[in-house]
Design a protein around this nucleic acid. Structure first.
Length: 130
DNA sequence: GACATGACAAGGC
DNA sequence: AGCCTTGCCATGT
């Protein structure tokens, strides 16, 4: 499924690095669909909610995915704060915008490869793609 | 099954 | 340079 590809792409993000939704969309082959990338994270099951799911908030570093402005989206549930904590735990310096938004310096922690490092090679995982 | 929504991004004004 | 509109496709009601 499309989501699975996105999750895999996100899992390619190295520790202590962050990238944008748009770039993820680019890596998965759908540069015109950054929204769906965000949806993936939104629909991302919690490790405690869907422990049987291959992809959940426990094995997918959704925290390393922020918007193109380098700002952590404010989903209104204080989730941004949780994301900030997760990022700082990885050594990522999370700053504060004028409005109090959590910002990350792409110039320092930005991760923008031309393509998925592991996608170019053979992935012998039990994926259920096309 | 159809309509509305959604953690975004880019173009236009 | 900033704000508003459009594009997108899977998930949910």
């Amino acid at each position: 499924m499309w989501y699975s590809v996105v999750y895999k792409a996100i899992q390619q993000i190295p520790y202590g690095k962050v990238t944008s939704y748009g770039h993820i969309a680019n890596l998965v082959g759908y540069p015109e669909r950054p929204r769906q990338v965000g949806l993936c994270l939104k629909h991302l099951p919690d490790s405690s909610d869907q422990p049987d799911s291959r992809y959940n908030g426990d094995n997918v570093p959704w925290q390393r995915v922020i918007n193109s402005k380098g700002v952590i989206s404010n989903r209104g549930a204080g989730g941004a704060a949780r994301q900030e904590t997760a990022l700082e735990a990885e050594g990522v310096e999370v700053g504060r915008g004028a409005l109090g938004e959590r910002t990350v310096d792409f110039g320092t922690y930005g991760w923008f490869p031309d393509r998925l490092p592991s996608d170019s090679d053979d992935e012998d995982e039990d994926e259920d793609e096309e």
